[in-house]
Simulated assay, not measured.
Amino acid sequence: MTKTTNEPKIRLSFLDGMRGLAALYVVSCHILPHLGENLPLWIMLPTKLMRYGSFSVAVFIVLSGYCLMLPVTRSQTGYIPGNLLDYFKRRARRILPPFYAAVILCCLLAVVILSLERFTTFQWYEMKFDWFSPRFSFVDVILHFLVIYNFVPGTDVYVMNVPLWSVALEWQIYFLFPLVFLPVLRRWGLLSVIALAFLIGLTPHYLLNGYMDVSRPWFVGSFTIGMAAAEIAFSQKPQLVKLRKSLPWGRLATIFAGIAVITEWKKFGIDAWIFETFASIAAACLIIYCTKIVILRKTPPLVMQLLEHPWAIALSTFSYSLYLTHGPVETLVNHWLVTLKMSPVVFAVTLYLLSVGSSLLVGYLFYLVFERPFTSNFLKEHKLKNSTN
């Protein structure tokens, strides 16, 4: 057990907004490949901004590192408050029930589709950039339940629900955090943790011919960048306090975001881990910048007002469920609309509106049934209600 400081808790609402808007951006990005070609400029130009979906995953991972590190930093002990078993229980309760529910729903959906193919004239035709396919194996299901599918080479194991690729990596990072990263941090410091994380994440890419590249293992390094952001934002170590006060974190966020966008251009042929790491650094700088604004009680700038908008925060409530379910929803909407023989413009507009709307609706309903009952707030309310009855 560890003691925490008596510092008053600070509400960092912008973190929720970042998570919610990142989830919505992923949903929008995954619609883009289905829009078709030869569309008017008023449709094509906005879609140019929808090509950086992996940046949102970088934001998720950095946020995870930041939020898990916050209680460690504020405790000033270098240890997770509470005991290790409680930590793993909390992480499992947070990520696994909705994940398993999404896997089971994909299995049920596959059974329905394959049954229709067998007993009716219906045929499921695979389309390019489908985010869901009913043609997965029993082994794929087992690998998902064991949350080790990202160790399998190739992409076939992901066809069940392609956006799930990052969940296994996140789950495995939860083990690295207390068992590897925190001990290294206590003994050798932040730079050693970050270096070790990128060594772990890039070894499959450079030494194993990139067989895990589809699951982007280098995001392990992005997690430790989030840890570093928490340390810089709240640590009382003199060198980190000086760093927090001396650097222009808002400008750095803009600079690194610009570098990430430029290095992502395909014509440069730069490895994905490089521009996704720049995106991670940009997210970390933005978090530190916004944290300073909150601590110093300054007037929030425009970007922070956007992140703290009630709609963005509301999105964050079910952002995980939205992420888990939007792939099959978008795929089903696309498969249905292509049968209606619409003009390209009408198809693009209808696809976007219907995909986003359906994904939000299904994601929220999924949250109410499969995610909310396992959240800490719900469990506390339920426990309090039972104790008063």
Rank of each mutant, 00 (worst) to 15 (best):
A58E: 07
I95N: 09
L108T: 01
I80V: 08
T77K: 12
T73Q: 12
C107I: 07
A92H: 13
V72S: 13
G78P: 01
W124V: 06
C67M: 14
F60L: 04
Y87L: 03
R93M: 15
F60Q: 06
A101D: 08
K48V: 08
Y100C: 08
F122E: 02
L114P: 01
F88E: 07
A110P: 02
F119M: 01
C106A: 13
M69P: 01
N83C: 11
N83S: 08
R94A: 05
P46E: 04
F55M: 08
C67A: 11
L108M: 02
L70I: 14
S54I: 12
K48F: 04
I95K: 03
F88V: 09
V72G: 02
L105M: 09
R51L: 10
Y87Q: 05
F60W: 12
R51N: 13
P46K: 10
V72M: 14
R93V: 07
R94M: 04
P46W: 09
P98L: 06
E117W: 04
A102S: 10
V103D: 09
P98H: 07
I104R: 05
E117P: 00
L84G: 03
T120R: 05
Q76A: 15
S56T: 14
L108V: 00
T121K: 06
W124H: 02
A101Q: 08
F122K: 04
V57T: 01
R74A: 14
R118N: 13
T73C: 14
L68A: 05
A58P: 11
L49N: 10
Y125M: 13
E117I: 07
R74I: 14
R94W: 05
I113D: 00
L109S: 11
A110K: 01
A110H: 08
G65C: 00
V62W: 08
T120W: 12
R90A: 15
L96G: 06
V72L: 15
R74L: 15
S56I: 09
W124R: 03
R91G: 07
L68M: 10
C67H: 08
R91A: 07
M69E: 13
C106W: 03
V111L: 15
I95M: 13
V112C: 01
L96P: 10
T73A: 14
T77D: 14
L114Y: 02
R118I: 05
C106T: 05
Y87R: 03
A101F: 10
R51C: 12
G82T: 04
S75N: 09
V59F: 02
M50I: 02
A92T: 09
A110D: 02
Q123S: 11
L63V: 02
V72C: 03
G53C: 06
K89R: 08
Q76H: 14
Y100P: 08
G82N: 04
R74V: 15
L63P: 03
R94D: 07
L114W: 03
F119D: 01
Y52N: 10
G53D: 12
L116E: 09
C106D: 05
A58N: 15
S64L: 05
P98M: 03
G65I: 00
E117Y: 04
L49D: 10
I61Q: 03
L63S: 01
T121F: 13
M69Y: 03
L116M: 08
P98E: 06
L116A: 12
Y125D: 14
P81F: 09
P98R: 05
